[in-house]
Design a protein around this nucleic acid. Structure first.
Lengths: 333, 333
DNA sequence: CTGAAAGCGCTTACAG
DNA sequence: CTGAAAGCGCTTACAG
């Protein structure tokens, strides 16, 4: 049936050596130069290439890392994936990628599948579900971590979390220099309420107002209207990218000038080439590539050098940059 | 060393049956109900789960599909990947994903790697490089295809190509109804020159002008300037998303009204949640999800039902929709 | 319906 | 430096 398969046995036969010797040539290789030559010739003649399944079965590493996503589209997941893939490729690993598409049941299933495939390591992005298969992962001693977030049965996984501390600090310093004292955080219940950012800003001595648009059922225009009536309104507003763009447009329509009247800062949380505003937004620029590279590096260190899995413990990785552009200016009090 | 591993042998022992019987329980399963019960109990007790490598080695399918990308970021690749992954997952396949990041050498290497892993099928997105490993793919009888494009050594692969014929036709019909007779295609040498679109438009009886901005070294503003001076200028302009947005802005700055003065159409070729214009662009909306679903379905049919690999021959798959929004209107002659 | 046995392709002690 | 042999975990004819 599998006629196409050239095996190491075939190579050994043609080279007139034992299969053990042939194996050594393609492996670590304590072989006499002349022998090596013969074997390599045979490999070329026959077009031999190894069978990964056989190696894995022998108890070698599968040279495989599994990544389970919750959602792949629109989010920053792609950038994570890209950096993860290239970093791991550089060390000889291949990447299993799966997306649960928001379904907990699928998420669990995919983790199970990766356990069956004996991945050498497992990364669970925004993990959620029962996590029953984690028992298998643990039994196999497979290093595993959650990335971005984890819920339910996956809570026991160490979490690799992005932090924006440094960027928030840089942003705060700049706002201070511009005379801002009060900051408004605008969000919709669906998006994350930027608790990290709020915390850092408070630490820096700003007074911080929070506005949940979903709660009051208002859109950007309604919000800006109401906001402008408040004599004690913050002089700077911060929101996720998309909402920030809407706020910009709303202000524009009402002839409110940015940054003269309001300073506006976006948080880049979606893959997008350019912001949807006419003037480029000052931005806290989330860059998951850092996260991917760093996570991958840790995995590789554990996998290759047998370093302690403690490397994968609860971590925060800085992954944002403060990018000042055209929408921040002196506080208008 | 591999203490964590519970094998089928362990299960068989505990259930008091032979390993063959245990195998039948987790497989096709001609087993007496009582026996099955015992084995299943043992599986639960021991927390057994199968080892994919062993199955693959036995000559089973690896239940694995490889996808090699040239670039993952910013392009529509993610959407392709997402639909591919979910469709294949539904049929029990796992997905190997790799990105060559524009390097031909890496591309070749990745294909080789997937051959070693005995993927059941291979998809090469924008394939390029020597393609030496294709010999192995062929020797193994692995169905393979290029997607979007292929170059160099990969030219022999069947190509699954997106087409925008239906969308272009719908767009053309609408433009005709609005009284347009001449259309301008604007592009920069770096982007693809929209030859397909041009062809369809000519077929429909439009006269078509092409403008290569890179060639004349002009930006959007310069182009609009020059274009407005032409008495025989096209009444409608079409360009890739990003350039279309620039044209919109340029017109806006010069107080040229869209769509009153010019009709403008974008081609959505980048993942983006919203177009970067103040009024939503009428758009030829490229949707790679269709392509992913369709490609995956074909693969599955070949893989599961043993259908002829001819299914994977040179194909065009419609993957665009005409979405009329605010930037197309009556021809201003 | 069940079991004993062969074998998938490889690597690695163990001898020589 | 090289070879014979065991064994990784599984499935599938082949007998019973």
């Amino acid at each position: 049936m599998k006629q196409g398969q050239v095996t190491l046995q075939d190579v050994a036969n043609r080279a007139g050596v034992s299969i053990a010797t042939a194996s050594r040539v393609i492996g670590d290789g304590k072989v006499k130069a002349a022998t090596r030559e013969k074997v390599e010739q045979a490999i070329r003649d026959l077009g031999y290439f190894p069978n990964a399944a056989a190696r894995t079965l022998r108890g070698e590493k599968s040279m495989t890392v599994g990544v389970v996503f919750n959602e792949l589209n629109g989010s920053l997941a792609t950038e994570l994936l890209d950096s993860l893939a290239s970093r791991l490729h550089a060390d000889g690993y291949s990447l299993f990628v799966a997306t649960a598409q928001g379904s907990e049941q699928q998420y669990d299933e995919l983790v199970q599948r990766f356990a069956e495939r004996r991945v050498d390591a497992l990364l669970c992005v925004n993990a959620m579900g029962e996590g029953a298969a984690l028992t298998h992962i643990r039994a196999l001693g497979i290093p595993a971590a959650a990335v971005f977030g984890r819920r339910d049965g996956y809570r026991e996984l160490p979490l690799i979390m992005p932090t924006i501390q440094a960027a928030a600090f840089a942003c705060g310093e700049r706002l201070k220099a511009l005379g801002h004292e009060t900051i408004g955080i605008v969000y919709q219940a669906t998006s994350r309420p930027l608790t990290g950012f709020r915390y850092f800003m408070k630490e820096m001595g700003f007074s911080v107002n929070s506005y949940d648009l979903a709660e009051t059922g208002s859109d950007a225009v309604a919000f800006i209207n109401r906001y402008m009536l408040d004599p004690n309104r913050p002089t700077a507003l911060i929101a996720h990218q998309k909402l920030a763009a809407e706020l910009f447009d709303a202000a524009d329509q009402m002839a409110i000038m940015i940054p003269q009247d309001i300073s506006l800062i976006g948080i880049r949380d979606q893959t997008q080439n350019q912001t949807a505003t006419r003037r480029p937004l000052s931005t806290i620029h989330l860059d998951p590539a850092t996260l991917g590279l760093e996570s991958a590096s840790r995995l590789v260190r554990i996998l290759k050098n047998g370093e302690d899995q403690g490397m994968l413990s609860e971590t925060h990785i800085e992954m944002a940059k403060w990018v000042e552009r055209d929408t921040t200016g002196s506080a208008n009090k």
